[in-house]
Design a protein around this nucleic acid. Structure first.
Lengths: 111, 111
DNA sequence: ATAATAGTTAACCAGATGGCAAACTGTTTG
DNA sequence: CAAACAGTTTGCCATCTGGTTAACTATTAT
């Protein structure tokens, strides 16, 4: 499931920070790794998780690998969440409507 | 990090299905577990992941435990994603602006 | 050609995850 | 009280995660 992979990739602060950095524009591995207190092998694992989730794409030219964000994957994850919120809102609206209707009926019964 | 927990909880299809079901309204554990091909102990683990992530809340009354969704946690996750998309859009706009400005200057140089 | 750079692979490790079956607790229901 | 029901705990297991160090490859730079 692509959503599984996207949400899993986003569940790690290092990986979210990488996505956030790449939003500002493409960057090579070394520059991306710099802010983090871990070795390159560990960091590469994070990059692979991001890449196999579709959240980023990478391309090697010469000895550097350039990484960039793939916004569509982010949008898919966002879509799932906003759909849930939409459903929630719809239900809330129905509840409000129900309560108001019932109150009106009660008023009629009272009057 | 709360976002870690929320995204992690959402990275499993069983747990997303539970959230989606609870959006329609609260339900007891047994009813929630029914659609899934796994034992109750395994299902309970999923529920605990959801609860400790803040995505759902549960309350036991008598021998049944009622679960409900906590929409705020979903909204937090959604916020992170929409903020990223906003930043992406802002960068894209700046790029478009830059290119258009440059093209205008080139036109002036050509003319 | 040597050396520095950028990234990669391999082997290993502790701890978390996602499943199982079996035994158990507490709460209705008959 | 006995039985059914809803959930819980325990112990077990295979696999995945996120990190390490050490050794290695391929590409610039001197």
């Amino acid at each position: 499931m692509p959503l599984d992979d996207a949400f899993h990739a986003l569940s790690d602060p290092t990986r979210r920070a990488v996505v956030n950095r790449l939003i500002a524009g493409p960057a090579p591995v070394k520059e991306l790794a710099e802010p983090f207190d871990m070795g390159l092998p560990a960091f590469l694992k994070h990059l692979r998780v991001l890449e196999s989730s579709g959240l980023i794409a990478t391309e090697k030219s010469g000895r550097v690998r350039i990484c960039r964000v793939r916004i569509e994957a982010l949008e898919q994850a966002e879509s799932w969440l906003s759909e849930q919120r939409r459903l929630w809102q719809a239900r809330t609206d129905r509840l409000v409507d129900y309560v108001e209707t019932r109150m009106t009926r009660d008023d009629e019964n009272d009057g």
